[in-house]
Design a protein around this nucleic acid. Structure first.
Lengths: 204, 204
DNA sequence: GTCTATAAAAGGATAGAC
DNA sequence: GTCTATCCTTTTATAGAC
């Protein structure tokens, strides 16, 4: 086997794996872990039934990989936004707008994350990842709200509660965006973030 | 068969049916439609496997009945609140507090509603009910926001969008309450509803 | 690397006894 | 009214040919 062929094979392998992951993201997002059959995934990917087991050891395996991607990507988005430039409010606003703007593309991953948080039928390992990264993400948000409070931009209430409120609102809005995909410019980010703003500071 | 016995039998039938519905609400909420086995339901209800088919014609059947309950109850809660006494803001606040207060008891129904909205594996009839009642509920909320705007309590933006924003936020918060059941007094309703308030009117 | 055919297991639904 | 045993379809996973 020449190195040339090895390389081509590796390339095919990478493509197939990505095909299966993309198909898995779609159908797992739409149908849930238990509601998705292996035949749904390979059907979506237009590959034969048996081939999936050359790339993943089981249905669980592929779900876990997708859940990992969902939670890690989400965490990194927050991490990046929190550590960027600008005032706390500016960073919060930029992050929120960025997340809403990408709802359509990342919709399946959002639904996978949602299911991983709520359903007792998802693979144990996925639940563990969810728990770990949710906590880490909330911690990042908490720091952002703390900073905002110190600089007088945000209302002074428990920053952990603000972080939880922010994440709740984000979930709720993204969920609505997925339920009503036709909505054009919903929501008004400025309006929403008023919850956290110390209006007295704006009057100065 | 004496009327006496008929009556007792009817009573047993009612109890069994309720047992199965309660068990179904729990396991469907926790595991989703596809992830729930008939054996999960009867196991939870502590009844034998075959008995469920004396009370329901299929797994679909019991799910549909539960979804109906979820959406109709939700609709009626909103209907009642919207048509009660007090200013629009007072009604909105009372409704919101009422909903949050009952999250624990109605948690399983909330999760069933959530799944019915997102999963393509739930029975067709449940999806139809979801669509119907969601639209009706949003219509009620829209009217409440319209009234609030006319009376100067609420910011003047598209009331449909406010209704959607309110329902998004509600979903997000209830979801968080179910994910973190230990939270005591989350959230601060007054804080949240600031999104809708016309602050200039408060200064009068 | 990919496919079809098959094995093995799981789960929904029914039958018939009590 | 209730239960256990059984049927039968669906679905995951593997084997082996190309």
């Amino acid at each position: 086997m020449s190195p040339r062929v090895d390389e081509q094979n590796q390339q095919i392998r990478d493509i197939r794996k990505q095909q299966l992951l993309a198909a898995g993201a779609k159908v797992f997002g739409e149908r849930g872990y238990a509601g998705t059959k292996v035949s749904d995934i390979v059907g979506e990917a237009q590959l034969s039934h048996g081939l999936i087991y050359h790339y993943f050891s089981s249905k669980e395996d592929i779900y876990i990989e997708l859940a990992k991607t969902a939670f890690i990507t989400s965490y990194e988005t927050i991490h990046q936004a929190v550590h960027s430039n600008g005032s706390p409010y500016e960073r919060l606003k930029a992050m929120t707008e960025g997340i809403f703007a990408h709802t359509r593309e990342s919709g399946h991953f959002f639904l996978i994350a949602l299911q991983t948080n709520t359903s007792k039928t998802v693979p144990e390992e996925a639940s563990a990842i969810s728990k770990e990264y949710s906590a880490k993400s909330l911690e990042l948000l908490k720091h952002l709200f703390q900073q905002g409070q110190e600089q007088g931009e945000f209302i002074k209430v428990d920053p952990s509660e603000q972080a939880l409120m922010y994440s709740s609102m984000l979930n709720g809005v993204v969920f609505t965006q997925l339920t009503y995909p036709l909505l054009e410019d919903f929501p008004q980010v400025d309006q929403i973030l008023r919850i956290f703003i110390d209006t007295s500071s704006l009057k100065e």
